[in-house]
Each structure stands twice: as C-alpha cells, then as structure tokens.
Amino acid sequence: MGRVVLVTGVSGTLASRVSRHLADLGESAGIDRVVGIDLRPPEGDLGGVKFVRADIRTPVVAKVIAVEDVDTVVHLDLAPARGRSGSGVKERNVIGTMQLLAACQRSATVSKLVVGSSVAVYGSSPRDPALFMESDSARGGVRTGFPKDVVEVESYVRGFARRRPEILITTVRAAQTLHPEIESPLRSYFLNPLLPAVIGFDPRLQFLSLQDTLSIIEQSVVKDRPGTFNAAGPGVLLLSQAARRMGKPVVPLPGIGFGAAAARIVRGMGGEISPDLHRLLTYGRAVDTSALRDIFGYELSATTEQVFEEFRLAQRPGVLALLGGGR
C-alpha cells in the first residue's frame, strides 16, 4: 500500500496544482491516493484527486482523515488577505491550522505532516539581516496580518511536534510562487498597470518557480525530510528593476498611509493589492536557502531573476502556451 495524502486548501490555484501533481505521480512515487479538502471546489480540473468538501476549521477534518486512512497531510491552506478586506482570513489560517493539528494528534494513521509556510514569518523591517536563515526570528513587522498568522501557525506546529514526536514534520518557508496561473499578492501587484511604491525605498524581492514549488512538496511527501527549510529562487530583484522590465510606471507614495493610498489607486484601475504587501514593498526581504540544498537535498532550478523573466514574458499573448501552460 502506498501513501494516502491529504492536501488542504485545494480550491486555491497552488494547492490544486500540487494535489494534481502528487496524484499524477501515483504508484511511481509510492502514492496510492490523494484527497483534496476545501470549503469550496476548485475551478480547475483536479484529475485523479478525490475532492472532499469540508471546512478544516471544524472537527469534520478528523473524520475525513479517519475515513480516508490518511497517513500524510500536506497543509497548504494558509493565505494572505486579498483586496480590501482580510475578513475571515485569520480565522481560516490560525483556527483552521489548530483544528487540523488536533485531528492529526488524535489520528492513529498520520505519520507525516508537510506545512506550506511562508518567508513572511520573518516579517520586513529596517533591522533585517541581508539574508534570513531558518534559525533567525523576525526583527519586526509581524504584529498584524499574514506575517503574524504564519508566526502563530508555526508556533502551533512546534507544539504539535512536542506532543507527537513520532510524526515526521517538514516545514517549507517558501517565497511567493510567481506564475501567471498561480494566485499570489505579488502576481496581482505586478499585473496592475501602475505599481505603487514607497518614496525612498527600493525593496529586494525573491520569488519561487512553480516547478521548484511542486518538486519541493513532492520530495517532502515521498522522502523523509524533517526540519524547517527556506525556499526561494537564488538572488534578488529590486522593485525598480522589476518595474522597468515590466515596462510599467511606478507611482511613488509616502510611507505613512501607503497601504490605504495604494489600495485606492489600484482599485481605481480595477486591480487589487494585498494589505499585507505594505512592509514588503517598503523594506523587502531575502532568505538563505543553503539548508534546502545541503540538508534537504534539493537544488533549486530557477533563480529569482529567471522566475520573474518567465512571468514577464508570459504576459505577452500566446506565450504562456509556449511555456507549457504553467509547467
């Protein structure tokens, strides 16, 4: 018998792609079945994934784990707020994770947990190091929003690890996957015709390719890779460089009140900007990925610059199909 994998948050574009990728691997990777769970069904085709409509914020997730004999849980139901409102996002991120961990703790079958965390756990502040390592903690900017959610989620995961030390846990602190077909705050930001920016700041940004995201989660599932690992394309790209390459003008705004002003401008253009981007677009962030290479055993296939270049080229009509439709 192969692994039975439960993937949370499969209505999201990234989690649905991950679950379909794992299902396609099938027996060749020792995977018997993949079960996807979410409150609403995904818009795209899940292929061989069995979809279960359920809310991980409720105890029903424990029933799903028991009925499906799940032994591997991939938790990807963590997301920042979109648009002007973060209503319900914190409850889904934090309460949902607590219910999922409680279900895993009571389960007699779960032996592995893969947590799709975020480099947002480090926050963004003027006191940040050049590169965050996994042993570093946030210097600032995690008091609200998605960064605070991620810090809380990881603290609950560590508590769970102490209670169930026999369960293997892999935490992947990933940069945003930048791809035309994958929802993310920076994707939405770069698709706007004008790019709001903070006067006097040129933040460093990092991105992760879709292929690397899929491969890292795959290896976390099919191999034993306990620990916490940063994942981001090597190198950095300045916001000013990204704007020039996209051919889009930057709208300089004061730092005070930037979030509200940027939201008004973007909404006026029919776009959206996540309220969690304010500090990132001010101070930026970069992480060290040597542990991913040296301990986890994965060599990243695309640099941050290459990820962005593929994203930029895909904005041209017909180019995405030539790139494999988001391989």
Rank of each mutant, 00 (worst) to 15 (best):
Lys63Pro: 05
Val35Thr: 03
Ile31Phe: 01
Lys50Thr: 13
Lys112Ala: 03
Ser85His: 12
Ala130Glu: 15
Leu131Phe: 15
Tyr122Gly: 02
Val70Thr: 06
Gln99Met: 15
Val67His: 13
Val115His: 00
Ile56Phe: 04
Val64Thr: 11
Gly36Ala: 07
Thr58Cys: 10
Pro59Asp: 12
Val114Ser: 02
Ile95Leu: 15
Ser107Ile: 13
Ala108Gln: 15
Val74Arg: 01
Ser85Leu: 11
Pro80Val: 02
Phe51His: 06
Ser118Leu: 05
Ala79Ile: 09
Arg53Cys: 10
Leu39Ile: 15
Pro126Tyr: 03
Val119Phe: 05
Pro129Trp: 05
Ser87Trp: 13
Val60Glu: 15
Gly86Leu: 05
Gly48Phe: 06
Gly47Ile: 12
Ile95Lys: 13
Ala54His: 05
Val94Trp: 01
Gly86Arg: 04
Asp71Gln: 09
Gly48Pro: 03
Val60Pro: 03
Tyr122Gln: 03
Asn93Phe: 03
Val70Phe: 02
Asp32Cys: 10
Ser124Lys: 00
Asp69Gly: 14
Asp77Pro: 05
Pro59Met: 08
Val60Gln: 12
Arg57Gln: 14
Pro41Asp: 11
Ser124Cys: 15
Val61Cys: 07
Thr72Asn: 02
Pro129Cys: 08
Ser87Tyr: 14
Lys63Leu: 14
Asp77Gly: 11
Asp77Ser: 15
